[in-house]
């Protein structure tokens, strides 16, 4: 019962903060609202008893990626004067394009069927032991492939970050 209320409360907060990301004038405020949005999503993970996912979500998104965002925005020191001025045509075409996207989304949601859960929800599925077992047995190949992908990205980042290649 209490989880239902918590779910609605967290969802309300998540949507509100997400809207604030878009609507706030100051880019630094936007980033901070995005961090709060990530927190509410982590709260949803905790409600599903997926604590590992919640913790990793906080560490990776709020702890690392958003700090870098904040870093760049603070150093750029964006404000009204430095904002690039776009022409009216550009604004109008952007409005038309995003309006069309909205139409497509509404149309696809209208014709979508409601998904019925095929098997009962197992509250222990998100615990770290079960997650590890599933990752190393059932999903071993995708797991290893994604590790190779991360390695490639890491090597690429180091190569790009080097000043000169001897």
């Amino acid at each position: 019962m209490i989880t239902t209320y918590l779910f609605y409360f967290l969802s309300f907060l998540a949507i509100m903060f997400a809207l604030m990301v878009v609507f706030s004038k100051n880019p630094v405020h936007s980033v901070l609202y995005l961090v709060l949005t990530f927190f509410t999503i982590a709260g949803h993970y905790v409600l599903l008893n997926a604590q590992f996912l919640a913790a990793v979500h906080i560490i990776v998104y709020a702890g690392a990626i958003m700090v870098l965002f904040l870093f760049v925005i603070m150093l750029l020191n964006l404000n009204k004067e430095t904002e690039p001025h776009k022409s009216v045509w550009l604004k109008a075409s952007a409005a038309v394009a995003s309006g069309l996207l909205l139409v497509v989304l509404v149309g696809s949601l209208k014709s979508a069927e409601t998904i019925v859960a095929t098997n009962a929800f197992d509250p222990n599925i998100g615990l770290i032991e079960n997650l590890g077992k599933v990752l190393f047995s059932e999903f071993l190949l995708p797991f290893e492939v994604s590790s190779v992908l991360l390695l490639v990205a890491m090597v690429g980042a180091v190569m790009l970050g080097k000043k000169s290649i001897k």
Partner: peptide
């Protein structure tokens, strides 16, 4: 005694940066 205690600790430590950054900016 959460079963992800170390990750919780690590997450909170990584959030410690925000206060300093926000205050400084």
């Amino acid at each position: 005694d959460v079963n992800i205690g170390i990750l919780y600790l690590f997450g909170v430590i990584s959030l410690g940066v925000y206060g300093i950054m926000i205050g400084g900016w």
